[in-house]
Amino acid sequence: MQFQFDSSEPIYRQVAEQIEDAIANGGFEEGEQIPSTTEISKEFHINPATVLKGMNIVVAKNLIEKRRGLGMFVSRGARDKIVNEKRDEFFESFVVGLVKEARNLDISEQELLQLIKRGYEK
């Protein structure tokens, strides 16, 4: 985990994103225990309440679950939920704009697909 303390994005949101990214990238497997609030706060010198606030975001999305007396664990299906959410964000953030710009430049669908294929080949 890496945190940008000079970023405009609040640390608690960075905590949530770091946990989600670790789940999506296989750093934390389904059913696996994640580091505790205390462990994260000590290792990265972050207020425990801030870490907990970030973890609660991930809990609210049903990506991790609290097991009383045991800690936090990655929920079943968490990786798939995150990947699907990121794909939707990718579509909205990049694909829609790409297609709009292609239309503005009179690039046909076939030409655009060829350009994308060329990008994959690089």
Rank of each mutant, 00 (worst) to 15 (best):
N104S: 11
M72F: 14
S108T: 14
K117N: 12
A49N: 14
F94V: 10
E111Y: 05
N25H: 11
V51K: 01
K81W: 10
R79H: 08
V51N: 02
I40V: 15
V74F: 01
V15W: 00
K66T: 09
E101W: 09
R67D: 06
L115C: 09
E65N: 11
A16K: 02
E89T: 12
E121V: 06
I19N: 01
F5A: 00
V83R: 01
E30G: 06
G69E: 14
K42V: 11
R87K: 13
T37P: 03
K86V: 05
A60K: 14
E30K: 10
F90D: 01
Y120M: 11
I82T: 08
G27C: 06
N56A: 04
E17S: 15
I40C: 05
P35L: 01
I116V: 15
A24V: 05
S93E: 13
F44E: 06
E121N: 15
E29C: 11
N25S: 06
F94Y: 15
F94I: 12
N84A: 15
Q14S: 06
L113I: 07
E85Y: 08
F44Q: 02
N84V: 08
Q14A: 01
F90H: 02
R13C: 01
Q4G: 06
Q4T: 02
Q2H: 07
E9A: 10
K122T: 14
N62D: 15
I11K: 02
N25I: 03
L112C: 11
A102L: 06
F5P: 00
